[in-house]
Each structure stands twice: as C-alpha cells, then as structure tokens.
C-alpha cells in the first residue's frame, strides 16, 4: 500500500470535520472489505484515510417517527441478528446473508455496500424495492434523498469527498411489506451476483398494490423496472401477469456482456428473478 495518513475520529461530527479538512484528498474507511482491496492495488496514495468503522452513532438500528432507521456503519452480521429488522424487513436479513462469507459480513457495513456502489451490490435491490431514503451529511448540514438518487454510476454516488453517509431509512408505510430478495451467483459463498432482484408488494382485495421491482447487476446502478411494475399495479394477482412483468423487466435493463455471464444469460436471469421474487412476495402476502 502507498503511504497515507490515518485518522480515527471519535464521532460523526469529528468525522465530517476531518473529511472537510482533508478534502478532496481523503477517503472514508468503514468495513474495509472493498476499500482495503482497492488500497492494496492503487498506485497513488489516497492522502488521508478517515476510519469511521468504530463510530457508535453510525451503528444504531431504531424505529423512528419516519420508519426504521439503520445506521450506515451497521455491519451485515448485525443486520442478520437484529430483531427490529427481522420483524419489519426480513428480506434484508436474507440479502445480508448472501454477502461474502461470515468474515466479510462481520466487517462490511450497509453504508459501505451502498457507497461502494458496485452494480451487483446485494444490499441495493431490497432497499430500493422498499423506497428507502438515505441521509447524507457534510459540514453545512444534512439532507435526505431517495436511495435511487444516491446512486450515480458504477462505483460512483452523489457523495462529495467531504460528505458522509449517515443512515438508511425504510419508510414507515413499508415496514412489514411483503418483500423477497433473490441473488443468483455461481456459488453460495463469496460470489458476486450475476443478477440480483427484489420485489415488494401488497395484495389488497386480490389485487397488486404498490408493486416495486428492483434489479442489480443489470445496469450501471441498481434500478427499478417501472413498466413491469405498472403492468401489475391494481390488477388481480395472476401467474400470467407475473410472467408478463418478467418479460417487460428485461426490456428495462441494460446488462453487460462479460466473462461472468453473457448478455443473453443475464437477460434470461432478469426474467426469471423478476418472476421468482414477485411470486415469493405474493406468497408472503398470502400468509399474512
């Protein structure tokens, strides 16, 4: 690794001050499961590394007036063990479990997964399907934005060098919403998603309501499939409609063709995963 300065602020405010003081030659270190790998390969020093991995304020999971607030520094293992997440957003537990292996989940954070912003991130689809919002803070205060606006491109978010991702909020209206996440990778452990997907929906009087379909590794960032959602919205639940939604979702994505999977294979996966997540969400709704 190229030499750099290491700063370990005690709290959120000190972290933002440190980022501002060293911006733009500064990087945030949270779990490090991705960033340290990058640091070992880059030819240029990042300047200053600000370690936020032990900041207690970033580690809370709590119900607020707005919904469920999950600190950006919460690890994937902590998500898997949390009773509030199990109660309100169990699909997040399944999504967290598909990330890396236990060592990765013990270090890696929810915020880190979002900020790293690789197209195959496994935290993204479930959160997008639940209309999650994020809080971003800088020296001049904080702002809350929809998660979909946070993502800009592969490894690129709207975060400025002097800004910090604080938390993720699942809106109250979506707590307990039937949701399913499905990751397709080549192995169970330590595999990147070839395609991942999440669907959330309510079934009211036998009809689809508030359908969300979200897909990862099929576009530069995690996306929704609004046309596929629209074809279901307000219609009676049926397998035929779900099949149609799968086919439409394929047309709404722009997957790459690479050594992990061909374009055609990824397109097939979009169809299959859209259907499977919708079907699973319908089954969850039926149990309730």
């Amino acid at each position: 690794m190229k030499p750099f300065d290491f700063v370990k602020p005690d709290d959120q405010e000190a972290a933002i001050s440190a980022l501002a003081a060293h911006s733009p030659n500064v990087r945030i270190l949270a779990g490090g499961t991705d960033y340290l790998v990058e640091l070992k390969h880059v030819s240029q020093s990042p300047g200053t590394v600000v370690d936020v991995s032990q900041i207690a304020e970033l580690k809370g999971i709590e119900e607020t007036e707005d919904g469920l607030r999950i600190g950006a520094g919460v690890t994937h293992s902590a998500i898997m063990a949390d009773p509030l997440i199990e109660k309100h957003v169990p699909a997040m537990i399944h999504a967290a479990h598909t990330i890396g292996a236990v060592q990765t989940r013990n270090l890696g954070t929810l915020g880190g997964n979002l900020v790293t912003c690789v197209p195959s991130m496994d935290s993204g689809p479930t959160l997008v399907a639940l209309d999650a919002e994020v809080t971003v803070a800088g020296p001049d205060g904080s702002r809350r934005i929809p998660l979909t606006e946070f993502f800009v491109g592969p490894r690129k978010t709207i975060l400025a060098p002097h800004e910090l991702l604080i938390d993720v909020i699942i809106p109250k209206r979506n707590l307990g919403k039937p949701t399913n996440f499905y990751k397709f990778g080549l192995r169970k452990g330590q595999a990147l998603a070839l395609v991942n997907a999440a669907s959330s929906l309510w079934v009211e009087d036998g009809k689809f309501k508030d359908v969300r379909i979200s897909l990862g590794a099929v576009s530069p960032v995690v996306v929704r499939a609004p046309k596929a959602e629209a074809v279901l919205e307000g219609k009676p639940v049926s397998d035929d409609l779900i099949s149609e939604a799968g086919k439409i979702a394929v047309t709404e994505c722009n997957p790459i063709d690479d050594f992990r999977a061909s374009l055609d294979y990824r397109r097939d996966l979009i169809d299959v995963l859209t259907r499977r997540t919708l079907q699973a969400a319908v089954e969850i709704a039926a149990q309730e």
């Binding site: 370990k8 990765t104 270090l107």
Partner: peptide, 15 residues
C-alpha cells in the same frame, strides 16, 4: 469476539 480477515483490517483500526 468476531471472526475477521486480518488482511482487511488496518493496524489503526485494531487499536
């Protein structure tokens, strides 16, 4: 108390 890959932890983080 948790298993981690020590290659992905900086010395400063272990302090």
């Amino acid at each position: 108390g948790i298993a981690v890959n020590s290659c992905l932890v900086l010395a400063g983080q272990a302090g």
